[in-house]
Amino acid sequence: MSADRPTREELRRGMAVEIEQTNAENADEADPIQGNIAKILSEEHTEPGGVKVELESGITGRVKSVVPE
């Protein structure tokens, strides 16, 4: 994994990650959320804001980091 945010290739369905929300009214002020990836939504291999994913909980956001097991 890179020193910055993980790339699309480094992420897999079911992987535990920490995201910054993108689908909440208060997303700018919201704390990062941890959860397991249900879907990888980004088409690009890398994105400056982080790869966009949907968690199993239905929350979408950009991946900040992978959560160590």
Rank of each mutant, 00 (worst) to 15 (best):
S2T: 12
S2K: 12
S2L: 14
S2M: 11
A3I: 14
A3M: 15
A3N: 15
A3F: 14
R5V: 02
R5S: 02
P6T: 02
T7Q: 08
R8M: 06
R8Y: 06
R8D: 05
E9A: 15
E10D: 11
E10C: 04
L11P: 00
L11M: 07
L11F: 03
R12N: 09
R13A: 11
R13M: 08
G14S: 05
G14T: 01
G14N: 02
G14E: 03
M15A: 05
M15T: 01
M15K: 03
A16Q: 09
V17Q: 00
E18G: 04
E18V: 07
E18I: 05
E18P: 02
I19W: 00
I19P: 00
I19E: 01
E20W: 07
Q21F: 12
Q21K: 13
T22Y: 03
T22E: 08
T22R: 08
N23Q: 09
A24H: 13
E25H: 13
E25C: 14
D28V: 11
D28K: 14
D28Y: 15
E29P: 03
E29I: 11
E29V: 13
E29A: 14
E29C: 13
A30V: 05
A30D: 09
D31N: 13
P32G: 05
P32Q: 06
I33L: 14
G35T: 05
G35N: 04
I37M: 02
A38R: 03
K39Y: 13
I40P: 00
I40R: 00
I40L: 04
L41A: 07
S42G: 06
S42P: 03
S42T: 06
E43M: 11
E43Y: 10
E43R: 10
E43I: 09
E44C: 11
H45P: 09
H45T: 14
H45E: 15
H45Q: 15
T46E: 12
T46A: 11
T46R: 07
T46Q: 11
E47F: 09
P48M: 12
G49H: 14
G49S: 13
G49T: 10
G50P: 01
V51R: 00
V51K: 00
V51S: 00
V51P: 00
K52P: 01
K52R: 14
K52C: 05
K52A: 06
V53A: 01
V53H: 00
E54Y: 03
L55E: 03
L55H: 03
E56M: 08
E56D: 13
E56K: 06
S57W: 05
S57Q: 09
G58A: 06
G58R: 04
I59W: 10
I59Q: 12
T60Y: 02
T60V: 07
T60C: 09
T60E: 09
T60G: 04
T60P: 01
T60W: 02
G61H: 01
G61Q: 02
G61A: 05
R62A: 03
K64T: 05
K64F: 05
K64P: 00
S65E: 07
S65L: 06
S65W: 04
S65N: 10
S65K: 08
P68A: 10
P68M: 09
